[in-house]
Amino acid sequence: MTGFLMSKKAKPFYTKLIRHLREWHRKLGIFAAFFLIFLSISGIALNHTNELSLAHQPINSSWLLDHYGIQAPNDVRFYDDNQLVITNNLVWLEGKLLFESHDAIVSMGKWQDSYVIVTENELYLYDLQGQLIDQLDQASGVPAEISGLSFTEQHIIVNTAQGYFQTDSDFFDWQAISTFAPIPWIMPNNASAQQKHTAVTMFKSQFLNLERIVLDAHSGRIFGMAGVLFMDFVAVLLILLSLSGLYIWVRYARAKR
C-alpha cells in the first residue's frame, strides 16, 4: 500500500519534469536552430573551399579590413592617367596586381608600346596588357641607385647617384649623359579622394579573403574572445538540447510500452 502511494506521488514529478523539458527544449531549440543552420552552412563551405574558391575572393569591406587591423599603405602614387598605381612595394595596372618589388619603386610610365617601371636597381618592361616582357638589373647594365625616370621619343633616361644615363629600346648600352636643360622627370599624378580610397582598399584586401572570414565566423573568432565564448555556449546548448531530446524520447518510448 505504501509503495503504491509513493508511485502515485512520484508520477506527477516525472510528468512535470517532462512537460518543463519539452517547453524549454522547444524554446531553446528555436534559438539554437539559427546557429545550427549557420554552422552547417559555414562548415559545408569550409569543406569545399577549393571548389568555391574562397581563398581567392578578397574582402573589400572597409569595416572588416579595419576590424582585422590591416594597415593602409604608407606610399600611394598614381601614374599614366592613374591607370598605374603604386602601393608600397606593389604595382597595380587598372585594378589588377602587376608585380611585387623587393626594392623601393622609383617611378613608372608608358613608353612607346610598353610600360616601364624602375626600382632603385632594376627596370621592368611590361606590354600594355600587363604581360612581363623583360626584367633588367645591374648584370644587364642597368645603373644602380636610380632615383628618377624620364622618356624621350627614342630613349629612356634615369637619374642615379653617379649622374644621368640613357638607353634605347634595345637596352644593351647605358650611356652617361649631361644636359644643360632640366630633365622633365616623371612625377606622380594627382588623384581624387575616391581613387586613393580604392587604391588603399586594393592593397588591404590582399591580406584578407573570404575563406578567413567564413572560418573565423564559424569559430566565433571574428568577434574576438567574446565570439569564441559565445560559440562555446552555443555548442554546450546544442549538447543539452540533444541530451534533453534523448531523455524525452526515452521517457516517451517507455510510456508507450
Rank of each mutant, 00 (worst) to 15 (best):
Ser244Ile: 07
Gly220Pro: 00
Arg257Lys: 12
Gly148Asn: 10
Val214Leu: 06
Leu125Glu: 02
Asp168Thr: 07
Gly29Leu: 10
Leu240Val: 14
Val214Phe: 09
Ala104Phe: 08
Tyr124Cys: 02
Val200Met: 10
Ala199Trp: 03
Ala235Gly: 03
Phe13His: 11
Asn190Phe: 09
Gly29Val: 14
Arg221Gln: 05
Leu90Gln: 15
Lys16Glu: 05
Tyr124Asn: 11
Ala217Thr: 11
Ser140Val: 07
Leu241Trp: 07
Glu120Ala: 11
Arg19Pro: 00
Phe230Asp: 10
Leu128Glu: 09
Leu65Asp: 07
Ser62Thr: 13
Met231Gln: 10
Phe151Ser: 10
Val236Arg: 00
Gln154Gly: 00
Ser101Ala: 13
Phe165Val: 09
Phe99Trp: 04
Arg251Val: 05
Trp185Met: 03
Gln135Val: 07
Asn159His: 10
Leu132Pro: 03
Ile133Phe: 03
Ser205Pro: 06
Phe38His: 06
Ile156Tyr: 03
Val142His: 13
Val85Glu: 00
Gly69Arg: 06
Gly69Gln: 08
Gly224Tyr: 01
Ile186Val: 06
Asp168Gly: 06
Asn47Tyr: 03
Asp173Ile: 15
Glu51Arg: 11
Asp127Lys: 09
Phe78Tyr: 08
Val236Gln: 02
Phe180Lys: 12
Ala104Cys: 02
Asn50Arg: 13
Asn60Asp: 05
Phe171Gly: 02
Thr198Ala: 12
His48Glu: 02
Ser169Met: 08
Leu64Arg: 06
Ser192Gln: 08
Tyr252Asp: 11
Asn50Tyr: 09
Leu229His: 03
Asp66Gln: 15
Phe171Ile: 05
Trp92Leu: 02
Leu128Gly: 05
His48Tyr: 12
Ile157Thr: 14
Phe203Asp: 06
Leu36Ile: 15
His25Ile: 08
Thr201Asp: 02
Arg254Phe: 07
Ile59Met: 08
Asn121Thr: 06
Ala191Glu: 02
Ala193Ile: 13
Ser114Cys: 11
Phe233Arg: 02
Tyr126Thr: 10
